[in-house]
Amino acid sequence: MNCFYLFLQRDLRLAYRDRNAYQLAWLFWLIMTALYPLAIDPEPLFLAKIAPGVLWIGVLLINLLLLPKLFMEDYQDGTLSDMVRAPDKLLAIVLAKLLAQWLASSLPLCLIAPLLALLLQLPHQAYWALLFSLLLGTPIIGLLGALLASLTLSADGRQLLLQLLFLPLTVPVLILSCSAIHQASLALNYHGALAWLGVILIASLLLIPLSISKLLPLHYR
């Protein structure tokens, strides 16, 4: 447990020092969202219809952009090879890193999301659905991304490879989140989709950190 807090603290501190990159990622989300009305159609009803998809694709792309930060720096400066030498602590370390990454990259997105939803004319009854879909969906996306990042750590051409592996696997989360928001904006019941997101989140929480802690040492054999 001590190890978990130590690494959580360390990774949060590193993320704070590197806050520029995270701020740029949020700006990217804002700019990308602003481009859709310009490129397609600024008509409010139409914007409200595409809003869930626009916001969520932005979330996916930001996660993709920030993915290499998770293990890459530790891999390159050799810290990871030390972490791997403590197999009984590795799971705690991985969990701490994942939590820190989520706190630094995705939690702020949940806070900015209402602002962007406003720009996209999302109906006000869909705001809670948007928030809950982000709170349940971004950890899944983060876990999945971390799994693939740990898989491709020593691969050549990592960044391009990651998008090929990552984006198709995020489809279920994308569909469930967007349909929850869409249904909420029509004032329909959206709890079903959120419940499924919760199921996927629990399953991935159980399986993925463990798999990552088994995969990371394999890069050093």
């Binding site: 898989l151 491709t152 020593s154 691969a155 051409g157 490879l161 592996l165």
Partner: peptide
């Protein structure tokens, strides 16, 4: 198929 050729060490890459 992309992962097959992505790793410098073929044996290691096969695991991933």
């Amino acid at each position: 198929m992309a992962l097959k050729n992505a790793f410098p060490d073929k044996r290691q890459g096969s695991v991933f």
